[in-house]
Design a binder for these strands. Structure first.
Length: 148
DNA sequence: CTTGAGCGG
């Protein structure tokens, strides 16, 4: 029970094939495949992919996500050096259940004419949580190293 | 920098 409808393992799913293949059998009808972890553990942080690379739908994403639950924070990831959107964003819900509803609600849906995918986000890369002030590059105590 | 398969400060 509690299995997702169209939730594919990880994020590798394909559109409807326009060309009808002769007969493509699945890997193996075995019970379980020792491939990779099905889905990450539940988290209030959601990763939304499938955004238009030429459009910053940060507010749309937030509006869309707020329909399923209370969105604490929503942001579209854009390249810091280039300034262009990378085509995906993050949505943080107030609670885990809202995050689940957000995934179930936005995952596989269309946004800006493109399919978007929602999944639990992993702990982002380091280099975040700046103390806001670094005067001493040498004798800096870096009190912000205590992440989470 | 007008197009994808991806995890940001």
């Amino acid at each position: 029970m509690a299995l997702r409808a169209v939730a594919a393992p990880r994020c590798v799913r394909r559109f409807f094939s326009t060309s009808t293949l002769p007969a493509f059998n699945p890997p193996l009808p075995t019970k379980e495949a020792p491939l990779q972890k099905p889905n990450p553990e539940p988290n209030t942080n959601l990763c939304i992919s499938g955004l238009n690379k030429r459009t910053t739908t940060s507010e749309k994403l937030r509006e869309k996500a707020s329909e399923f639950g209370e969105v604490v924070h929503a942001k579209v990831v854009t390249d810091r050096v280039s300034g262009y959107s990378r085509g995906f964003g993050f949505v943080e819900y107030a609670t885990l259940e809202d995050a689940a509803k957000g995934i179930e609600g936005m995952d596989g849906k269309f946004l800006d004419g493109w399919v978007i995918f929602a999944e639990y986000a992993r702990p982002r890369a380091p280099r975040m949580q700046p103390s806001g002030n670094m005067s001493s590059p040498y004798g800096n105590r870096s009190p912000s190293y205590h992440h989470q």
